[in-house]
Amino acid sequence: MYPKDLKYTEEHEWVRVEDGVATVGITHYAQEQLGDIVFVELPEVGQRLEKGESFGVVESVKTVSDLYSPVSGTVTAINEELLDAPEKVNEDPYGAGWMIKLELADEGELAELLDAAEYTRMLEEEG
């Protein structure tokens, strides 16, 4: 449910870092809470995001949720497939359901994120 090689936020985003590029999506828990996802709005490539800044929205049939960038950086790619097939976020949140790729501005920010064990504990505490 919560891969060990990812970092997590309290707002239920995940980050995977490879060669200074962070891939960002929402967690299994988040997609489950939202229910059927029917719309995703993503930023433009080239946009600069600060850590914690809203980079888009994800909408289920009933709910609208903001997406928050887990780290600071510049958007290098967005998952355009989600514009026509937002259900991929439900089906494969850590794979085909990825949302944006960021060129990291400050790798030091990664240390402030939760690891899988910490994120899982947080979910348990929230009950």
Binding site: G35, D36, S60, V61, K62
Partner: peptide
């Protein structure tokens, strides 16, 4: 319940 198997 808001949903069981999914709203859609």
């Amino acid at each position: 319940p808001v949903e069981y198997s999914g709203i859609i």
